[in-house]
Design a protein around this nucleic acid. Structure first.
Length: 264
DNA sequence: GCGACAG
DNA sequence: ATCTTGTCGC
């Protein structure tokens, strides 16, 4: 897949100031409103997309339904294993991965400079054209409104959303503990975010919950590029098939783990 | 100075 | 993210 805007590539050699400046440029170039090539209301994943269940996997896009890709990574020593899994109509249509040397350590707020390059390398090996990418991490929920989902989404001019398991910054409008499945509340910009206070930068979304006793933490979802916060939440809701994480993410997660295991 | 901090 | 056994519950 083509890299449409190389000037936005997350170069790990940049100084910290240059990284932060680039993130502000990325946020300016990002669209936090719906501009999708498909109707989000038609997206639905009935049940878990099986690994390699006979008959469910076919190669290549074969309908007008949106192609949605999940992106995730695993790590092995100083190498990143970036994995992408594409689904369409509830079936896997392509898997891709790239093994790349890691240049810099993880720094909160600068994740895209560690993992963005490896992810772009994996995208370059993908033959199908995605309509939406689901990232493991934040999008607009970020100090400079340019989390990894936004950064890669803008660099590829691809609609994207971020799904994080922990909140990086911002403030939930209501307490998030012990909420029922389907519940959500806005994540608003606070003093740690470069946006007007109370700007809705994402949602805490309870994708799954136990009936009693133990409790599951919500997901923190946010727009990456070309999608609004509310639609991001609705898309994640539609993509979760009975598990805490959306199906594209679970598939990419397994692809990354399998690839890592095969490397030894 | 102190605390907080995606993967 | 990663290192890892047992264990609780449907």
């Amino acid at each position: 897949m083509a890299l449409d805007r190389p000037e936005f590539r997350p170069d790990p050699a940049l100084s910290r100031d240059a990284m932060e400046t680039l993130q502000r440029d990325i946020a300016d170039a990002a669209t936090f409103a719906d501009d999708l090539p498909f109707d989000p209301d038609t997206v639905a994943v009935d049940g878990p997309v099986e690994a390699d269940a006979s008959g469910t996997e076919r190669l290549g896009a074969s309908s007008d339904a949106p192609v949605i890709v999940g992106v995730d990574q695993a790590f092995l020593d100083d190498r990143a294993v970036s994995a992408i899994v594409a689904i369409q109509d509830g079936a896997v249509i392509e898997r891709a991965h790239a093994v790349t040397p890691l240049e810099i350590p993880y720094i909160p707020g600068l994740l895209a400079f560690r993992e963005g390059g490896p992810i772009l390398a994996a995208f370059e090996t993908l033959s199908v054209e995605p309509d939406l990418a689901v990232f493991d991490g934040s999008g607009r929920i970020h100090f400079r409104q340019a989390g990894i989902a936004t950064h890669v989404g803008v660099a590829l001019d691809l609609p994207s959303i971020g799904v994080a398991k922990k909140l990086l910054c911002g403030e939930p409008a209501e307490p998030v503990d012990d909420r029922p499945a389907g519940w959500s509340t806005p994540i608003e910009a606070d003093g740690t975010v470069e946006a007007p206070d109370s700007t809705v930068i994402g949602y805490a979304y309870q994708s799954r919950q136990w009936d009693r006793d133990q409790s599951i933490n919500p997901l923190y979802v946010s727009p990456g590029h070309r999608v609004s916060a509310a639609t991001t939440r609705d898309l994640v809701d539609a993509l979760c098939a009975g598990y805490k994480l959306p199906e594209p993410t679970r598939l990419a997660d397994r692809n990354a783990d399998d690839t890592k295991a095969a490397l030894g």
